[in-house]
């Protein structure tokens, strides 16, 4: 017999909620360790720079433990093809942004927009066209219309 969406949500929530809770618990512990390593010569107030982060790490640990025990419902995690697409969108965007100062804004924007358009259903040629138009339009608006700084790219314009 197939389970109801509510039951499925509860099951999904129980597993992924516990994974999230474990990550949060580990994060709370790391936070407490990082807080103990904060260096300061003196503080003009009685609390100092460590009190607030310590308080937060304790509160987070308690909440994460509570969440681990009662994880509640959550959306089902997407299938592998979608996860791969999401990963590729994030990776392509991050890499393109990472090289923006080197190659300049225009190629970066072109890559990001083309890939996003492709993932959202455009054909390869259409995606490249969308990338080119978007990159040129926003570059012109921000650079010449609003006068904001956008990198030209040290690769093409050294110095």
């Amino acid at each position: 017999m197939s389970s109801s969406p509510h039951e499925e949500g509860q099951r999904n929530g129980a597993f992924s909620g516990r994974v999230t809770a474990s990550i949060l618990l580990a994060f709370a512990a790391l936070l407490a360790i990082a807080t103990s390593r904060i260096e300061y010569a003196f503080s003009s107030d009685p609390l100092g720079p460590q009190a607030f982060p310590y308080l937060l790490s304790i509160a987070l640990a308690i909440c994460a433990a509570w969440y681990f025990l009662r994880p509640g419902a959550a959306d089902p995690w997407p299938h592998s093809q979608m996860l791969w697409s999401a990963f590729s969108l994030i990776a392509v965007t991050a890499i393109a942004v990472g090289i923006m100062d080197y190659v300049g804004f225009l190629p970066t924007a072109f890559i990001i927009c083309s890939w996003a358009a492709y993932l959202f259903g455009s054909g390869p040629a259409g995606a490249l066209g969308i990338g080119a138009v978007q990159a040129a339009f926003w570059f012109a608006l921000f650079k010449y219309g609003l006068g904001t700084y956008l990198p030209a790219g040290t690769l093409f314009f050294p110095g």
Binding site: A109, I112, A116, A117, G121, A127, I130, G131, Q134, A135
Partner: peptide, 10 residues
């Protein structure tokens, strides 16, 4: 969406 999403992202 093929135009809107790249716009939002950019």
């Amino acid at each position: 969406n093929t135009w809107l999403i790249p716009t939002i992202l950019l």
